[in-house]
Simulated assay, not measured.
Amino acid sequence: RHSWPSALTLRIAMLGKGLLLVGLVVLWTHIYRCTFVNIDKTMHFFPISVEHAIYKFNEDQSDELAYKFLRVRRSQRKIFSHIYLVDMEMGRTICKKHDEDIDNCPLQQGPEEKKVRCIYIMRTIGWFTNFTIFNSTCTQI
């Protein structure tokens, strides 16, 4: 007589633990896929992510003049990953894109002046120098 309630109680407890585990897995998956958090723009591999995004932007442009970094508007990282959101502004310089030291090159002035705001979502594996750009959007400002 006493074994039936104990077996039922044990099964209910196991079912509850199973549902809790499934709930935690669903929650973990949601957090892992969706959540970007603000980070210091000097932390982790964010600075080399910015450098790579600028390099790719310049390489992909038909313009022979280089754009250089102006400022970071937003620096974020996806929780528990190496995926970064880079939101930055760049300005068109008077230097060609394959010149050295573009960072010290003056910006275009007057009618040739152009600035862009770009948002990149990318994975950076810094110790392998591996970059994957998942999405990028640039608009002239």
Results as ranks from 00 to 15, higher is better:
3 S>F: 14
6 S>H: 15
7 A>V: 09
7 A>R: 11
8 L>Q: 08
8 L>G: 05
8 L>W: 09
9 T>N: 10
10 L>P: 02
10 L>Y: 06
14 M>V: 13
18 G>A: 07
18 G>E: 04
19 L>N: 11
19 L>H: 06
20 L>C: 06
20 L>T: 04
21 L>H: 07
22 V>P: 02
22 V>W: 02
23 G>S: 07
24 L>P: 04
25 V>H: 07
25 V>S: 08
26 V>Q: 09
29 T>P: 09
29 T>Y: 13
30 H>L: 14
31 I>T: 07
31 I>D: 10
32 Y>I: 11
32 Y>D: 13
32 Y>R: 15
35 T>R: 15
37 V>D: 08
38 N>P: 10
39 I>C: 03
39 I>V: 07
42 T>G: 06
43 M>D: 14
43 M>A: 15
43 M>I: 12
44 H>F: 15
45 F>T: 13
46 F>N: 01
47 P>D: 00
48 I>F: 04
50 V>E: 00
51 E>P: 03
51 E>H: 09
52 H>S: 06
53 A>I: 03
53 A>N: 03
54 I>Y: 00
55 Y>V: 14
56 K>V: 09
56 K>N: 11
58 N>C: 01
59 E>M: 13
61 Q>N: 05
61 Q>A: 03
62 S>E: 15
62 S>L: 15
62 S>Q: 14
63 D>Y: 06
63 D>R: 08
64 E>L: 14
64 E>G: 14
65 L>K: 09
65 L>E: 11
68 K>I: 04
70 L>D: 07
71 R>A: 11
74 R>Y: 07
76 Q>H: 03
78 K>Y: 08
80 F>N: 12
80 F>Q: 10
81 S>N: 03
82 H>Q: 11
82 H>F: 12
84 Y>M: 03
84 Y>W: 01
87 D>F: 00
87 D>P: 01
88 M>D: 00
88 M>R: 01
88 M>K: 00
88 M>V: 03
88 M>S: 04
90 M>A: 06
91 G>L: 00
92 R>D: 05
93 T>D: 00
93 T>M: 05
93 T>L: 02
94 I>T: 14
96 K>N: 12
96 K>W: 10
97 K>P: 02
98 H>R: 11
98 H>C: 10
98 H>K: 12
99 D>V: 05
99 D>Q: 08
99 D>Y: 10
100 E>N: 10
100 E>P: 07
101 D>A: 13
102 I>A: 04
102 I>W: 03
105 C>W: 01
105 C>L: 01
107 L>D: 01
107 L>V: 03
108 Q>G: 04
111 P>A: 04
112 E>A: 15
114 K>R: 14
114 K>E: 06
114 K>G: 04
115 K>R: 15
116 V>W: 05
116 V>K: 07
117 R>G: 03
119 I>S: 10
119 I>M: 12
121 I>E: 06
122 M>S: 07
123 R>Q: 13
124 T>W: 02
124 T>G: 05
124 T>F: 04
125 I>C: 08
126 G>W: 02
127 W>F: 11
127 W>D: 12
129 T>P: 06
130 N>P: 07
130 N>S: 14
134 F>R: 00
134 F>Q: 02
134 F>H: 01
135 N>P: 07
137 T>P: 04
139 T>R: 09
140 Q>K: 12
140 Q>F: 13
